[in-house]
Structure formats: C-alpha cells, structure tokens
Design a protein around this nucleic acid. Structure first.
Lengths: 187, 187
DNA sequence: GTCTATATGTGGATAGAC
DNA sequence: GTCTATCCACATATAGAC
C-alpha cells in the first residue's frame, strides 16, 4: 500500500515534530528521533539528506496542519465567531502551553536565532496565521486597521504562551483568552 | 584594584550575556564566550564550575538590570506614566527586538524547554516584571484585576517581541506599543 | 591565578554489507 | 531499501605546568 511505502518517513516526521516541540530543534538529536520512530539511525539519511531537511519536513507538516485548522474555523459563519474559535483552540490547549509553550512560537523563536534558511521557512507559520486573522478583521469591516488588530490578537496569544510556559501556569491562558475574546466581541 | 581583581569574571559574564542573546544559551559554546572575552578557555572553569553556573551569573546580571530599570521608571510620578515608560523602553529597543527578540523572553522560552534548574531561575526575570507591572495597576486603583491587566500588558509586549523577531519586522513593535499605550491611558 | 594540552562524550554524517 | 559500524568535528570539563 502507498501508506506503507513511506511509513518510516512519516514516523520520522511525527517523532521529530514531537521531540522538537518538547526539547527544541537543536537540542533534539537524530538519534533521539530515530529511536522514537523505531528506525535505525543510519536510515534517517535515506529519507532526509540532512537534519535541516527533516526540519523542513516538520515545518511543512505544521503548515498543512495550520491550513486545516483555518478551514475548520471557517465553519463558523461570522468573522468574530471564527476569531473566537481560534482563541478557544488556544484555551483548549492551555495545559500543553504551560508545559511546552506554543508549538509554533517556540519553534520560530528558536530558529530565528539560528538565522538559517529554516528560520525563513518557519516564519511562514506565523505569517499564515497573521494573514488569516487579518482577513477575518477585514471581513468584520475593519479594513483600515485589520493589520494592527491582527498583530494585537496574535501578539496577545503568543505572549501568553511565553508567560504560561515560562511560569508554568496554565491559568494565565484562561485569563488572557477571556480578555481577548471580549475584546473581539467589542469591535 | 578591586575592579581589576574580577575583571575576567565580569568580561566572561558580559560576553556570555551577549552571545547567549544572539545565539541562544545551548548554541553558545564556552569557547565562543572565552574568545569574545579574551580569556583562555581553560580559565573559564576557574571562575565558573560549570557552564550552568555561568548561565546563573548571566541571569543574575539580568535580574539586577531589571531592578535598575524599575527604579528608573519609578522616577515618573503617576503609575500610568511608569507603565508607559516601560512600554516606551520596549519601543526604543525595536531594532534589537526584530534582530534577536526579547532578551528575557527568548532566554526564558529556551531554558523552559530544557527544564533544568536554570529554567526556574530564569522565570524569575519575567516574574519580577509581572509583579512590578501589577503593582502599578494596583496603584492605579485597579486592585481587583491588577493581575489580569498585568498579564495582558506583558503578554502583549512578549508577543510582539516574538512576532517582530520571527518576522524580522521592527514596525510591528511601533504598531503594538501604540495600542498598548492608548489602552493604559484608557483605564 | 593563568595558561596549554587533552580526556571524554556526543552529534551529524558517511561507507558499505546485506 | 535496510541496517551496522564508524569517521570527524566540536563541546564540556579536567590535568597539570608555570
């Protein structure tokens, strides 16, 4: 079956995604990933030329996940409901946020320091979110300041991710998402 | 002179602080730090038992810097002015933010993933900021929701740090600090 | 206190048998 | 395509002369 053909490849990407989120990309060794995926270390290089190539695959997986999330939030008919669905998804994830931070934010932060080609690719994750949010604000009739509003919302969520993670306090997410939801409704 | 006695030690801390901010703590080797400080690699261990001990010293240096900053902002008489002075200090730093993110936020994020004793120590940096901000809101007469307001302000600033850094766009800091300043004045 | 040399471990990457 | 063994670079940490 086609699903089996690249089974090891998929397993490696999933293991890399999980380990990278938990420990950071640089701190995750290919040996860690191979072990978690149940694949011999040497085989990693059959599927990915370098560690960086595996990193790209991880980002691609997160990108397609983001697009699926956008699709699901667009089931809500009003732009405000869509934005609140986004905020709610963060709230639903509060425990993981307190344990490991935002999977996208922490990845982008780390890779941005490295300043490699991966940094540019990872920034696309935040960019896609920002564009989607901005579009919702435009649909809400806030054409002139949609950009600024989108920055405010995403910054608030990224920021509370940093705080909840660093302080190990999931309740911060409750507090801040409530405020952001009310802010959206007030526009 | 006493100032010369621990000259190398101070140089090492400064070099470590700079390199850690630019590349991340784990990605910075003791060889990098020693070279930048003009100190032979072996000597590092005369001043610091381990790399982690040097990390602690870096955090201590940042902690005392934070306290000095709080003192300077308290030159402003009104709590709102003090909070705006804090926000302004972030705006003044926008170029560095776009290049390397928030020196405190990125450090806390990275170390929180490692989950070592350094993580706890680094979280004190954010905690101190949060407490100071909360106190200003209390002085503003917002006793009941000072905590939630403080989270909102610090999250906004941390978040815009993540965005400006990852997207390499200092203008985001201009946009968001303007909004946060107006929000403070509206309370 | 200051420096050089080096032990020790680990990680990315490759070679080559099967 | 899959696996084992290994090369090589680099990082923390130590030993020991000066």
């Amino acid at each position: 079956m086609a699903s089996v053909k690249h089974d090891s490849r998929e397993k490696l990407i999933r293991a890399a995604q999980k380990a990278t989120y938990q420990q950071g990309f640089a701190q995750t060794s290919l040996a860690d990933i191979a072990k978690a995926a149940g694949v011999p270390l040497g085989n990693v290089y059959y599927y990915f030329k370098t560690k960086e190539a595996l990193g790209e695959a991880v980002i691609d997986a997160r990108l397609s996940y983001i697009h699926r999330a956008h699709d699901s939030w667009e089931q809500s008919s009003s732009p405000a409901d869509r934005l609140c669905a986004f905020v709610d998804s963060v709230l639903d994830n509060k425990e993981a946020l307190a344990r490991g931070g935002c999977s996208i934010g922490t990845l982008c932060s780390e890779l941005s320091k490295a300043r490699g080609p991966l940094a540019r690719k990872a920034s696309e994750l935040l960019k896609q979110h920002l564009l989607w949010i901005q579009e919702q604000f435009s649909l809400l009739g806030r054409n002139t300041d949609a950009h600024s509003l989108a920055i405010h919302l995403l910054a608030g969520l990224q920021g509370v991710g940093v705080l909840a993670h660093s302080l190990g306090d999931a309740d911060l997410v409750v507090t801040e998402t409530r405020r952001l939801r009310e802010w959206i409704r007030s526009l």
